[in-house]
C-alpha cells in the first residue's frame, strides 16, 4: 500500500470521526453510514475494515465508552457495511440500492445493540424495548436514506477522481482491484 493511499485513508477516518462529533447534538442524525458505504465502495475490503476499526477505537477513546457491552455491537454493526457491500450488494454503485440498504441499516444498527443493552441495563422485556427504540432507528434510517441517495454519487465521483490523481501523480497506480 502506498503512503499516499495510507494518508488518504487517515484523512477519510478523520472526516468520519469529526463529522460524528459535530453532529452528536442531534440524536442519530449523522453522515457516518453514508461515509462508511462510500469508503466501502472506494477502498478494498481490508482497507475499509481498517478505517472502521480505527474510527470505532477513536470514538470509544474520545467518549470513554470502551465496554464489553458497548464496543462489540459497534464493531458488529459498522463492519456489516463492508461485508454486505462486497457480498449481498455485489459492489453496486447504484445509489437507490445503497440508499435502501442505508434505510434498512438504520434499523439494523439499533437491533444489534438491543441484546447488549438488555444485558447492560437488566431489561428483561424484549418487545417494549424494541418498540421504544424504533423512533431513534427511524431517525437514523431517514438520515441514512436521504444522505446516501443525494450525496453518494457526487462524493463518490469526486473522491474517485482525487484518488486517481493522487495515485498517478507519483507515477504509479494502486487502484483497487
Amino acid at each position: 500500500m502506498s503512503l499516499k493511499r495510507l494518508i488518504f485513508m487517515a484523512m477519510c477516518t478523520t472526516v468520519l470521526f469529526v463529522q460524528e462529533q459535530i453532529l452528536m447534538i442531534v440524536p442519530n442524525v449523522q453522515f457516518t453510514t453514508l461515509l462508511i458505504v462510500l469508503y466501502a465502495s472506494l477502498f478494498k475490503f481490508r482497507e475499509s475494515v481498517a478505517i472502521i476499526v480505527i474510527y470505532i477505537i477513536l470514538d470509544n477513546m474520545y467518549m470513554s465508552s470502551f465496554h464489553p457491552l458497548y464496543t462489540p455491537p459497534m464493531f458488529i454493526a459498522w463492519l456489516t457495511i463492508p461485508v454486505v457491500y462486497h457480498t449481498v450488494l455485489r459492489k453496486t454503485k447504484n445509489e437507490i440500492s445503497l440508499a435502501l440498504f442505508g434505510l434498512f441499516f438504520g434499523f439494523y444498527y439499533g437491533w444489534v445493540f438491543i441484546p447488549f443493552r438488555m444485558i447492560e441495563f437488566g431489561i428483561t422485556d424484549f418487545w417494549p424495548y424494541l418498540m421504544l427504540d424504533l423512533p431513534f432507528e427511524i431517525i437514523m434510517a431517514i438520515s441514512n436514506f436521504v444522505t446516501i441517495l443525494w450525496l453518494f454519487k457526487p462524493l463518490s465521483t469526486t473522491l474517485e477522481t482525487e484518488m486517481r490523481s493522487l495515485e498517478t501523480s507519483y507515477g504509479y497506480r494502486d487502484v483497487k482491484s
Binding site: 418498540m131 424504533l134 423512533p135 436514506f145 436521504v146
Partner: peptide, 23 residues
C-alpha cells in the same frame, strides 16, 4: 425519481414515527 423516492420514504417513516412515538 430521487425526489419522489425521498418524499415517499420520508412521509412513510414520519408516519411510522408518529404512530409509535407515544408508545
Amino acid at each position: 425519481r430521487k425526489i419522489v423516492l425521498s418524499i415517499g420514504v420520508i412521509i412513510t417513516m414520519i408516519g411510522l414515527f408518529l404512530l409509535i412515538i407515544d408508545f
